[in-house]
Simulated assay, not measured.
Amino acid sequence: MKIYRSKIDCWLAVLIPALTILPALPIVISGEDIWVVVLLAFISALELAVVTGFRYVIDGSKFMVKALYVINSGTYDIGNIVEITPTRTILSSPAASLDRIAISLSNSRTPLVISPVDKEAFISTLTAINPDIRVKS
């Protein structure tokens, strides 16, 4: 079993909690309700945990996307991977960076977009299992 972490863009790790905190900043500054501050801090911490917790696991002929270290977001058969293409799409995906790869599967119309830190090693592992995968550069 091989585990690859997601690459993390620093601006994303700052932006997501900021979008939670900024709208409530007047309440925080006024100090009227400490529970709002506690709730916002908890929500921001949870958001950061999700963003920093993406893992891509290759186990035998299966590829899994995990979030928060425990939640299995999807399991895919490596034999169904047709093509891997670099992308910088901003569409929602289990990727914490815009330095991404799109994995096209034979049984899906929509590619899976992820952002492993070491893309070359990740792709090499997949192509060692399924040499029919086309890799675009």
Rank of each mutant, 00 (worst) to 15 (best):
M1W: 08
I27G: 06
T75A: 12
T110F: 14
R134V: 15
Y69S: 06
A24V: 11
T125A: 14
G31Q: 09
T85H: 06
A45L: 14
D59C: 07
F54A: 00
S137M: 12
E120D: 11
P111W: 03
A45V: 15
T89S: 15
L19D: 03
A128S: 09
I114E: 01
D99P: 01
V57T: 04
R88S: 11
Y69M: 05
S44Y: 10
E120Q: 12
S61E: 15
I84Q: 00
S115C: 03
A49E: 08
I78Y: 01
L15K: 09
I129N: 02
D132E: 13
M1A: 11
T52L: 15
I84E: 00
D99T: 01
L39P: 07
S108Y: 10
V65K: 00
L105D: 05
I133T: 08
N130R: 06
A41L: 15
E32K: 10
P23T: 10
S6P: 01
R109A: 15
L98S: 09
A96S: 15
I101Y: 01
S30F: 09
L19R: 11
I129F: 06
W35K: 11
P131E: 08
V82D: 10
T87M: 07
D99W: 08
V36Q: 11
S124M: 13
P17G: 02
R88C: 08
L15F: 15
T85Q: 11
A96I: 03
A13D: 05
G53V: 13
N107D: 14
D9Q: 10
S92I: 15
S92Y: 13
L48C: 09
A13F: 12
L12S: 03
V65F: 00
E47R: 04
V50M: 03
E47H: 05
F42T: 08
K7W: 11
S61H: 13
S93K: 09
L15V: 03
E32V: 11
D77L: 01
F63T: 02
I43W: 13
A102Q: 06
E47I: 05
A67M: 09
I90W: 15
E83S: 14
L15C: 12
I27M: 12
P17N: 05
V117I: 14
P86S: 06
A102V: 07
K119Q: 15
D132L: 12
I133R: 02
P116G: 05
A121L: 10
W35E: 08
I3N: 02
F122Y: 04
L112S: 01
D118F: 09
I16T: 07
I43Y: 09
A41E: 04
L40I: 03
